[in-house]
């Protein structure tokens, strides 16, 4: 259900911003359109995955934990 709501919201955003997506010609508009699509695409995939039953097998923030947990642990210990 989460994924269905996600696709619905993405379509709504696309309709609301059709002018920007099709006509914008200001500086940086191409990159902005690419970023728009990346954010929307990633959002839809994330919404679908978050709604699945086997979601617990994923650990998307694991890389941050690996990098920053030792520093955080040091902060706790230094006092």
């Amino acid at each position: 259900m989460n994924g269905v709501v996600g696709v619905g919201l993405a379509l709504l955003c696309g309709v609301l911003q059709w002018r920007f997506l099709l006509r914008a010609e200001e500086p940086g508009a191409k990159t902005a359109r690419l970023v728009w699509c990346v954010l929307m695409g990633a959002g839809m995939v994330a919404a679908f995955v978050a709604g699945r039953q086997d979601f617990p097998s994923l650990h998307p923030l694991g890389w941050l934990e690996t990098v920053f947990t030792p520093l955080t642990r040091w902060l706790y210990e230094v006092g």
Partner: peptide
């Protein structure tokens, strides 16, 4: 990051991505 003159185009996609990310 994109070098545009305005940030309004980013409001909806960023809000959507953040909403999905908060559950993902």
């Amino acid at each position: 990051v994109c070098g545009t003159q305005d940030a309004r185009w980013a409001v909806l996609p960023a809000a959507f991505a953040v909403w999905a990310a908060s559950y993902f």
